[in-house]
Computed example of a mutant assay.
Amino acid sequence: MAVHDQMMKGLLDGAILGLIAQGETYGYEIMERLKENDFPEISDGSIYPVLLRLDKKQYVSTRMVKSDNGGPKRKYYTITASGMEQLTVFKQKWTDLNHGMNNLMRSVEDVE
């Protein structure tokens, strides 16, 4: 797995938890909100495995809702208490990592 793919996998967990923490939502809406926030290279294939993993870890709870237009049921996601704890940890780790990476990249810019 490429470094970029590994980075995206880790970041998607936190990003998706952050979106779900803002209110109950469903997969397609999550994907659209990530795109609206300039999250790079998002596809259906990358969102649903993360949602499944978050559900298995009990960071989110789900409920099925019948479609208004007669289509298939839609799965809605809500963050759980343990999901909020995990999001808090992620935010702190991201802040620390982002600070360190910014410092490192500034020093690399000085070399160029």
Rank of each mutant, 00 (worst) to 15 (best):
M1S: 14
A2M: 09
V3P: 00
V3W: 09
H4E: 15
M7N: 08
K9H: 13
G10H: 09
L12P: 03
L12H: 01
G14K: 02
A15L: 11
A15Q: 06
I16T: 01
G18T: 02
G18E: 07
L19H: 03
L19N: 03
L19R: 04
I20M: 05
I20A: 04
A21G: 03
Q22T: 09
G23D: 05
E24K: 14
T25M: 06
Y26S: 01
Y26M: 00
G27C: 03
G27V: 04
G27H: 06
Y28Q: 11
Y28G: 04
E29W: 04
M31V: 00
M31F: 02
R33S: 08
L34I: 05
L34A: 05
K35G: 03
K35N: 09
E36C: 00
N37V: 00
N37T: 05
D38I: 02
P40C: 05
P40H: 02
E41K: 13
E41G: 08
E41N: 15
D44F: 12
G45N: 07
G45T: 02
L51M: 01
R53K: 13
L54N: 01
K56M: 10
K56W: 02
Y59R: 06
Y59P: 03
V60A: 02
S61E: 13
T62P: 01
M64D: 11
M64K: 14
M64N: 11
V65I: 09
S67N: 15
S67D: 15
G70N: 04
G71H: 09
G71M: 07
P72T: 12
K73E: 12
R74L: 14
Y76P: 06
Y76V: 05
Y77W: 03
Y77T: 03
T78G: 04
T78E: 09
A81G: 06
S82I: 15
M84A: 11
M84T: 11
L87D: 03
T88I: 12
F90G: 01
Q92L: 12
Q92I: 11
K93E: 12
W94H: 12
T95W: 07
D96N: 13
D96M: 10
N98F: 14
G100V: 05
N102K: 13
N102I: 12
N103P: 00
N103S: 14
M105R: 05
R106L: 14
S107K: 13
S107D: 10
S107E: 15
E109R: 12
D110K: 15
E112K: 14
